[in-house]
Every structure is written in C-alpha cells, then in structure tokens.
C-alpha cells in the first residue's frame, strides 16, 4: 500500500514522501519521535500519522508490517537506529574521541592491559557514567558489575561518583550561568544502589551468572551496561581440556552478544595480558587465545608509553585504529595532563 493512498492531509502526505516514506512498511518500524524529526512536525502530529498508517495497514491486511514479521531490518534502518543510540562516556574526551563518542551500546567491547594500567578503574568509571541522567547527555541507566578478581572497592566507586556529581554541578552552573539553583538530585550513594554487584569465585559461578543475566535484565530493563572484571581470571586455572575451555568461552561470548543486541546494552569484558611463546621468543598478548579474539565486537588495548597511559583500538568494525593518552586520577579516568606539562617545561 502506498503512502499516497493514506487518509491524510495533502501536506502530511507531501512531507512523508519528501522525507522518503513512500510505503507503509517504511512507517511500520519508525518511532513517533524519529518521524517527528524527519518530517519536521510536532510529535503528537507524528503519532497521529502513525496511528492512521497502522490502522490502514491493519485494514489492508496483506501488505504493511512485513518488516516486523520477518524480523528483518534494512541496513538503512540500522544506521538510523545506531545514530540515535547514546554512547557511554569514559570521562576522558580524548578516549571518547577515538571511540567515536564513547563505549557503544549493543556491542561487546573487550578491554585488555597489564596489571595496574587501569582496567578496573575504567570499569568502575563506566558503571558510574552509565547513570548520568539523560538531560546531562547520559543514559540514565543502571549497571551490572561482575567481579571475579575482588578488585572492586566500594570506597573507590564512591570517590568516582562524587567527582561525577561535581562535574554535573559544574555543568549546571555553566549552563545557567549560576542563576538557577542546582538541579542534580542524585547523591553519591544513589550511584551505589544502581550498580548490581556480583562477586564470583569460580568459573562455574561465572557461567551460571551469565546464563541468569537474561532473566535478570528482562526484570531490570534499565540496565545499560554489563561489566565483567575480568573474564579471564577463572579460566586460567584447572583447564586440562583446552577444547572445553574454548567451547565454554565462546558459548559465554555468544550469550553476551545476544544480550547486548536484545536489550541494547553495552557489554564490557576486561581481559588480562599474558606472554605468548612463539617462534622461539616471548611477546605480550591478550589472554585466552586466538579463538577468543573473535568473540568481541571491538577490542581496546591499554598500555604504557613511557610515563603515560595509552589506549589503542585494536579491533573495531566501524572505528579506525587509533590511540590516545588518558590518565587515572583521584576523580577517575580523565584526559592525560602531560600536554600541559610539556608547555610548562618549555
């Protein structure tokens, strides 16, 4: 059925066709806010149009909504959807830059590096940043933190949450030129309440939790990030049967990827670094082997470059490989300060 045959006003039909909505099926998967933006009309008007379209589609019976029935989506729609997705900021503008605005939802991102480089710090930072309310450019979501190593310190979370709140207050002052009273109603403790924390002591427990996540998240739809710190720890002991390990790991990766897609959330897997022996020499590589490196959508490697921490995009379907410095401060992950230092030294 064509849009031109819908019982709408001529101007609305004109706008629809002008914006590229020629068939009913193209209207079936679009939300009212998207339509309002595309047509440059108010949201209530867009809603009316959608109502009319779905009613006509239902009358028509045969055509319409086949896009939904088959579960198929065109790449064009997916692009639109992706552009609308908010990303989770890392609190370092440089790092966000190379990540295309932050950690993307719907993807599994692996972050690896040597001990002490700041993997856990980045994990905690993301668990806090996902909670930044939407009017501050955040997601206003909640976090699941799966801790296998015991490095998650509540006092550190509180520190980072306090700094995050301060930044939000600064933003308020900047925006309203200090005239209006602050609008942030969150307390540092609220950040803690919004992190679902699982402490895992064996690999069987880890698999159990990941199997349970689907049920848990469908009950807690506002979860927007799942952080596993680290995916590696329990898989580096007790495995004589390496084939079993590979199977378990890839099974887990598939589940996590499915979760990311289904609930539009970001999955962050922290990985350790190990030395790999090949061709007579040792060199550093991320743990869990070659087959694991296929498991994640994107991969970020953290490393030292002289006295600075750097992040490097090792694998990503959409971002070019790039690196940027960052630093771990008392307030959390921030931009590296060395640029300022260099100026001072000169």
């Amino acid at each position: 059925m064509e849009v031109s045959r819908l019982p709408l006003s001529a101007s609305q039909r004109g706008k629809l066709i002008y914006a590229g909505y020629t068939s009913l099926s193209s209207l079936s998967s679009v939300s009212s806010s998207e339509l309002a933006r595309d047509l440059n009309v108010s949201e209530t008007e867009a809603l009316e149009i959608l109502k009319v379209a779905s009613y006509s589609g239902w009358l028509d019976g045969t055509s319409g909504s086949h896009a939904i029935v088959n579960g198929a989506q065109t790449a064009w729609d997916m692009l639109h959807e992706e552009e609308l997705l908010r990303r989770i900021t890392t609190s370092s503008a440089d790092l966000d830059d190379i990540l295309g605005g932050g950690i993307s939802c719907k993807e599994v991102t692996e972050i690896g590096g040597v001990p002490g480089i700041g993997k856990t710090q980045l994990g905690i930072q993301l668990a806090v940043n996902v909670q930044i309310p939407a009017n501050y450019g955040g997601l206003g979501g909640k976090a699941i933190y799966i801790d296998t190593e015991g490095s998650f310190m509540v006092e550190r979370v509180l520190q980072i949450a306090e700094a995050c709140l301060e930044d939000m207050l600064d933003y308020d002052v900047l925006l309203h030129k200090g005239v209006q009273a602050c609008q942030v109603k969150m307390q540092p403790k609220d950040f803690l309440a919004n992190i679902y924390y699982f402490r895992i002591c064996s690999y069987t427990e880890l698999i159990a939790v990941i199997n349970y996540l689907e049920k848990f998240i469908s009950e807690h739809k506002d979860v927007k990030v799942v952080i596993v710190d680290s995916i590696t720890f329990h898989f580096r002991q007790d495995f004589e049967d390496m084939a079993l390990r590979t199977r378990l790991l890839s099974g887990m990766a598939l589940k996590l990827m499915k979760l990311a897609k289904k609930f539009t959330l970001a999955v962050i897997l922290l990985n350790q670094v190990t030395t790999k022996y090949s061709e007579g020499s040792f060199h550093l590589t991320l743990a869990l082997g070659d087959s694991w490196s296929h498991a994640c959508t994107s991969r970020l490697i953290l490393y030292w470059n002289s006295n600075e921490r750097y992040a490097y995009i090792d694998k990503s379907p959409s971002l070019r490989s790039a690196s940027s410095p960052y630093s771990v401060t008392g307030r959390g992950i921030r931009n590296s300060t060395s640029n300022c230092k260099r100026i001072k030294m000169m």
């Binding site: 040597v114 001990p115 190593e149 190990t274 030395t275 550093l284």
Partner: peptide
C-alpha cells in the same frame, strides 16, 4: 606477569 594478575 601471570602472578601480577593474581594480586589485587
């Protein structure tokens, strides 16, 4: 480095 991964 393996052991370094084992301590907090």
């Amino acid at each position: 480095i393996s052991w370094a991964n084992c301590v907090n």
